[in-house]
């Protein structure tokens, strides 16, 4: 009995030592010399591995950053300027600061504004739907509503609003990694500067059809009337292919265009709400803040216009 126990202990110990030696030898032999700064940079990164920077993951980004001569071509959208400053100090380089950005849904074709003209019966994927046809509404540009962007977002920052059938971006969670921009086959989503206190103005429509056609398909569409471009004192608005676009680098948030737009296609979000509603709304659901306001005033307006058209 004792013999067995001793034998067991001896054998196992010998085996353990032998294997340890083998491991030691292997570790020595196959050791890969790596710049220790790669680990440091990787540690400084958020570690989301989202690919928003254009690299395969945070490690790949760190590797490239260490090898690069300057950081002009690299930016971690998730970490933003703070993280980039850290990395720059590790590597002894300079960075150009970037304004924080956020994903913006440029379609306001809600179920009421943009009636469904047929029923899509295929797999719930925008990509499949877009490759099949122009969509189940009269607008062949807008959101298809199958939620590819929601599935693409790793940060849980996008959700479909079942009432409007449109995706809603949560500003506080959005890291501007751009995954949703890539996922959207219609290019509805754009990364725009977040703006001071998240205030920003944008055209929530990408319909390039002529005004009447766009209007017929969706009552919230931009009809390319150019009123906004004329009223803009900063030259931030251009109208091309029957569609207005606001350059966020030039926009000074004066809101003149918002008041001018006849269809309510220009959205101003996160602006402090003046009385009669004094309490500031939570900043999180940015887009819906604007949406409930729009239909509240608009139906009457559009009806009047429709009648006018009929005559």
């Amino acid at each position: 009995m004792t013999k067995t126990i001793i034998l067991t202990i001896v054998t196992l110990t010998a085996l353990g030592l032998l294997l340890a030696l083998v491991l030691y030898w292997v570790a020595k032999k196959f050791r890969v010399e790596e710049d220790p700064r790669i680990d440091e940079v990787e540690k400084a990164l958020p570690g989301a591995n989202c690919g928003g920077c254009g690299f395969a993951g945070c490690r790949a980004f760190a590797d490239a950053a260490v090898k690069a001569e300057n950081l002009d071509k690299q930016f971690c959208p998730v970490g933003g300027n703070d993280v980039m400053k850290n990395i720059a100090s590790i590597l002894g380089l300079e960075i150009k600061e970037k304004a924080p950005q956020v994903a913006v849904v440029r379609c306001n074709g809600t179920c009421e504004a943009r009636p469904r003209i047929n029923t899509y019966d295929g797999v719930q994927s925008c990509r499949v739907k877009a490759s099949l046809y122009s969509g189940d509404t009269g607008c062949s540009f807008g959101c298809l509503g199958c939620g590819d962007c929601v599935a693409a977002c790793q940060f849980g920052a996008i959700a479909m609003n079942p009432l409007t059938g449109l995706p809603v971006v949560d500003d506080s969670k959005c890291t501007a990694c751009g995954a949703c921009v890539k996922a959207c086959p219609k290019n509805v989503i754009e990364l725009r500067n977040k703006g001071p206190r998240s205030m920003r103005i944008f055209v929530s429509c990408i319909n390039k059809d002529k005004g009447a056609v766009a209007r017929k398909a969706c009552s919230n569409a931009c009809i390319g009337c150019s009123k906004c471009a004329k009223v803009c004192p900063h030259g931030a608005i251009t109208v091309e292919n029957n569609l207005a676009y606001i350059d966020f680098t030039k926009c000074k948030l004066c809101k003149k265009c918002v008041a001018e737009c006849p269809t309510g296609a220009i959205h101003a979000v996160n602006f402090p709400v003046l009385p009669p509603k004094p309490a500031a709304k939570p900043a999180a659901p940015a887009a819906p803040v604007a949406k409930p306001e729009a239909p509240a005033t608009k139906p009457a307006e559009t009806e009047v216009k429709k009648e006018a058209n009929n005559e």
């Binding site: 469904r116 003209i117 047929n118 029923t119 899509y120 019966d121 295929g122 797999v123 499949v128 046809y133």
Partner: peptide, 8 residues
Amino acid sequence: KSLLVSPS
């Protein structure tokens, strides 16, 4: 009526 549309 709203017609169905799907891939083949």
